[in-house]
Design a protein around this nucleic acid. Structure first.
Length: 674
DNA sequence: CACCCTCGAGTTCC
DNA sequence: CTCGAGGGTG
């Protein structure tokens, strides 16, 4: 290649791309030799033009694998990959194809094994001694990581481990998957964070990084594990010829073998056995990305041959990915009702957990900085609790050098007012009291569930009425006229009437809802209810004074001050006056604290999860409170019961972990009836 | 003072 | 669901 700056840049990009394919995707597109050749060429160019060298050059990458190469080792037999199936139909079709080739397979047995999300290693034993550990590489040639492999405690250094009676072939080459248990991964990350180091993105990432350590002393400190599942090659001696016997054989020799691998007599029972795996995936302590289906009779399986690099006798049933990577195209900033600026990620849409996602919150600007997330980065995404998209972090290995560091804006993206960052607080605020974004969010909150519950007044409509200058604070909602609404796009008679009716109906909402709706900092659903029960009216709260407020459990100096401040502000005084004038001044009887003792659920903390039969979520919460219980949203040691309905979330699991009793809706109702 | 718990706030997609 | 912050406790 001619030495021009353009070519240099091109080559640099190409190398970085292959680097990423190799290290991150574990799917190299070129051989190591070709890769080395590209690198040599790049070095030559840099020798002629040292001024071109920038920090993003692969030759400058500190501690990269390029400069600290492991020796290349050819495998004694190809380390094969697997064809993928994505549903049972694919599995059936696969099996039908094999039966066509070999009709005797109609009645064959199968093994189902976990497809562990880790790294393949190939272990070579000579006369029972571990002499070499090699990565998979391209399946033909791998990298010698013997020193690192030796530090993995569950890998036998000498076989057989247990009884000396078993005969071991003079050469035995075993294939396994190195991975990290989720619990070990969490502990490792805690340690890394405690030491001020960057935590690993996920167990796989942690395992990969640990195995590739140049310094095996570091690998030794990493909690790596292994499960073996294949004998790649042997010399001198004999080994069983079915997969289930081979696993048993490996186990007897002292190799770790997953307990999740099971034998099935025929195709039908194996298909049924697949159903178990959705739950297995949830409960086991390591990540799997699928189930491997193997024809148990290895002689017949091998006779089927290959499709490309994939043996016909096996197939992987892949689960939908929970973690995917995509490109972070930009970072946007939202303004909340309290004025907090919240950044969010906009990325190339990807399918994650079965749905397409394109946005995710980044929580705050420290989150972006601490994880070193840059615009243009390849980022790892998951759906937290399989629902809400969440950016785990950047794949720094994929950096090309043109990624942009993002900094918190100095001005509000909506009103342009200067932002403020209070000492000791993470949040960045827009402090402009008349920022339209804040007004919109404020009105939206007023109308929302848990507050005044004005149906038909969602964010879109709020934006419309605020932007049309019809509403300047929440009290203006009550003087909206039909004519004004009809002037808005998308509003005809019916819609306008419905909205006005809903607004009118909101005047009947109880005190706790109204207190929540006001949007006082630190006062949400729970605090609003406390305030309502203790003071009985808006005026009661407004006149309470800081000390009285603080005497209430759950309210400390900060929230008390926020409440006092809110009612002292002139604009808020006007709002309260106007609301009263429009008929919003709900009152309730102040509840003496101790009359609840004889109620059936007195003193019990109860958390509800999943869908119930007879009650809505809000309904059951109200019922629990009526009967003297407390209904919280998260499970902790203090929780007395967790009520589990259909399709429960992670709370059920957490309850089991903490040993909190799990009861059904029926059982709860029985407790109340008593 | 260090911890644990709870609450509030912002948020995604179907 | 996640994170930060406030509140309470040992």
């Amino acid at each position: 290649m001619e030495i021009t700056h353009e070519n240099y840049e091109k080559l640099k990009q190409e190398i970085n791309f292959h680097n990423y394919q190799y290290h991150v995707n574990d799917a190299p597109l070129i051989s190591d030799a070709e890769f080395d050749h590209l690198l040599i060429e790049l070095r030559e160019m840099e020798g002629v033009h040292p001024e071109w060298v920038s920090p993003d050059s692969p030759t400058m990458r500190a501690g990269s694998v390029i400069s600290e190469k492991f020796a290349k080792v050819p495998h004694p037999a190809p380390v094969l990959s697997l064809a993928n199936a994505f549903n049972k139909d694919d599995v059936r079709a696969w099996f039908e194809r094999q039966v066509k080739t070999d009709p005797s397979l109609e009645a064959c047995a199968f093994m189902l094994e976990p497809k562990i999300d880790g790294l393949t290693v190939v272990l070579r034993y000579e006369n029972g001694i571990l002499v070499q550990g090699v990565t998979r590489g391209d399946g033909i040639i791998g990298e010698d990581v013997t020193l690192n492999v030796r530090t993995i405690k569950s890998i036998p250094l000498r076989i057989p481990v247990k009884s000396a009676d078993i005969e071991v072939p003079s050469v035995l080459v075993v294939r396994g998957e190195v991975f990290m248990f989720n619990s070990d991964f969490e502990k490792l990350n805690e340690e890394l964070i405690a030491n001020g180091e960057q935590p690993k993105l996920n167990p796989r990432n942690a395992a990969a990084g640990s195995l590739r350590q140049q310094n095996s002393g570091i690998t030794a400190k990493r909690p790596l594990s292994i499960y073996t599942y294949q004998i790649l090659y042997y010399e001198g001696g004999s080994i069983p010829q079915t997969q289930h016997e081979r696993l048993e054989y490996l186990r007897e020799l002292g190799f770790p073998v997953s307990d999740e691998s099971h034998y099935y007599e025929d195709f039908g029972s194996m298909l049924k056995g697949l159903d178990r795996w959705t739950e297995v995936r949830e409960t086991i302590d390591f990540d799997i990305d699928g189930v491997v289906i193997k024809i148990d009779d290895l002689t017949r399986a091998e006779a089927l041959g290959f499709v490309g690099k994939d043996p016909r006798g096996q197939i992987a049933l892949k689960f939908p990915a929970r973690e995917v990577t995509t490109v972070l195209e930009n970072i946007g900033v939202n303004v909340g009702r309290t004025g907090v600026l919240t950044p969010f990620a906009m990325f190339e849409p990807v399918v994650c957990g079965g749905v397409t996602v394109s946005k995710a919150t980044l929580h705050n600007f420290d989150f972006i900085r601490d994880r070193d997330i840059r615009i243009g980065d390849r980022v790892l995404i998951k759906r937290a609790g399989d629902v809400i998209p969440y950016v785990i972090g950047p794949i720094t290995e994929a950096r090309k050098g043109d990624e942009k560091v993002f900094t918190a804006p100095q001005t509000c993206p909506v009103c342009g007012h200067k932002t403020e960052h209070l000492e000791g607080e993470v949040a960045v605020y827009c402090v402009n009291a008349s920022c339209p974004a804040q007004l919109i969010r404020n009105v939206e909150h007023y109308a929302s569930r848990g507050a005044m519950e004005i149906t038909g007044l969602g964010i879109k409509v709020v934006e419309q009425i605020v932007n049309a200058d019809l509403v300047h604070d929440v009290s203006d909602l009550y003087i909206l006229s039909k004519e004004e609404l009809l002037s808005l796009e998308g509003f005809a008679d019916k819609k306008a009437e419905n909205l006005l009716e809903a607004i009118e109906a909101s005047k009947q909402q109880p005190l706790n809802r109204l207190v929540n709706a006001l949007g006082i900092r630190g006062v949400g659903e729970a605090m609003a209810e406390m305030l309502a029960n203790n003071f009985g009216s808006i005026d009661g709260i407004a006149d309470a004074g800081k000390e009285t407020l603080e005497s209430i459990e759950g309210i400390g100096p900060n929230i008390a001050q926020a409440i006092v401040d809110w009612f002292e502000q002139d604009s808020n005084k006007i709002i309260v006056e106007r609301l009263k004038r429009f008929g919003l001044d709900p009152r309730i009887e102040i509840q003496p604290k101790n009359m609840k003792e004889d109620l059936p659920l007195y003193g019990l903390n109860i958390v509800v999860t999943g869908t119930l039969q007879a009650y809505s979520r809000d309904g059951i919460k109200a019922l629990i409170k009526e009967n003297g219980g407390k209904s919280a949203d998260s499970v902790s040691k203090k929780t007395d019961y967790v009520v589990v309905g259909d399709n429960p979330g992670s709370k059920a699991g957490k309850a089991a972990k903490l040993g909190v009793p799990i009861i059904s809706e029926q059982q709860l109702l029985e407790m109340i009836r008593r």
